[in-house]
């Protein structure tokens, strides 16, 4: 007679085959995947080592892992191009962190406004959609003409790369807030501001964090590319100048460090996501 009884019936008639899969995979999958990934990495390293030690490729084209490790020690202590590896790394991290903070500070309110108000959406949406698809390096020259080749230009470029994904995800999150959550708060007497601060914003948090993850990925690629063009410090600069002098081990070292930082940022953000929005994927 009632829907719940009907749905009980449906449960009886659903074929039982899929169930065992669903029970087995969640526990088995993560560890197996991790093991396979580690094994792949190990095999790659071993191949790299074998090919270079056997002398199949000249060090100019691909230096051995040992040489890169040795270079790591050298750049970390003595430095390369007037700065140690840490100083290059520090310069890059400073730029991305500054740009990220500025982007979060401005993009979240902009995203909120787009999600909440038709007018704000009408004004801001076309602006963001206009510049978002342009590769940042395409407008770097313009930014250099306007702001010079100093830190400001680089940070601004990264900022722009991070801004759009965060603003767009925030707006999406705001528009997807469960309407009955909003109504529940309204019928508990929430004012408009209370509603935004205590219901809408926390509801959109999972999307905001996803936006930050996407933005940070885009920002990091833009950063390295920007440093290739105009900089005296930074990982991108280090790789670029090493390439000009055919110091291949520094090039490889730089690339590995860039990859490791990107990977660490991603893992850190995922951990943050699990901490801040543990309910994601658990409701409904």
């Amino acid at each position: 007679m009632t829907t719940s009884e009907l749905s009980l019936d449906e449960a009886i008639f659903t074929p039982p085959e899929p169930a065992p899969h669903q029970v087995v995979t969640p526990t088995a999958k993560p560890t197996t995947t991790l093991r396979i990934s580690l094994a792949t990495l190990g095999v790659l390293l071993a191949l790299w080592w074998a090919i270079t030690t056997a002398g199949l490729i000249q060090p100019l084209f691909l230096p051995s892992p040992q040489a890169v490790l040795a270079k790591l020690w050298l750049t970390a202590t003595k430095g390369y191009m007037d700065a140690t590896l840490w100083q290059h790394l520090g310069a890059s991290l400073f730029r991305i962190v500054t740009a990220l903070l500025a982007a979060v500070l401005f993009a979240v309110p902009v995203g909120l406004a787009i999600g909440l108000s038709r007018k704000a959406r009408g004004v801001l949406d076309p602006l963001i959609e206009f510049y978002r698809p342009i590769p940042p390096l395409a407008y770097l020259p313009l930014i250099v003409i306007w702001f010079g080749i100093g830190e400001l230009s680089k940070i601004l470029l990264i900022y722009l790369a991070i801004f759009a994904p965060i603003a767009i995800s925030t707006a999406t999150g705001v528009r997807n807030v469960d309407p009955s959550r909003v109504r529940a708060a309204q019928s508990l007497g929430a004012s408009r501001w209370q509603l935004i601060a205590q219901v809408v914003l926390p509801s959109a948090l999972p999307d905001i964090l996803t936006g930050i993850r996407i933005g940070l990925g885009a920002g990091w690629s833009t950063l390295v590319a920007a440093e290739l063009v105009a900089a005296t410090r930074g990982l991108g600069f280090m790789v670029q100048s090493a390439a000009q002098f055919l110091v291949t081990d520094v090039v490889v070292l730089g690339i590995v460090v860039i990859a490791l930082i990107a990977f660490t940022l991603e893992l850190g953000l995922r951990a943050l996501q699990r901490r801040l929005v543990p309910w994601q994927g658990q409701m409904h």
Partner: peptide
């Protein structure tokens, strides 16, 4: 003429705040 705290509402989907 609008929602107010003197009328409490219970929804079919609980509409709780998970944070």
């Amino acid at each position: 003429d609008g929602p107010g705290a003197e009328r409490g509402v219970v929804f079919q989907d609980d509409a709780l705040l998970p944070w």
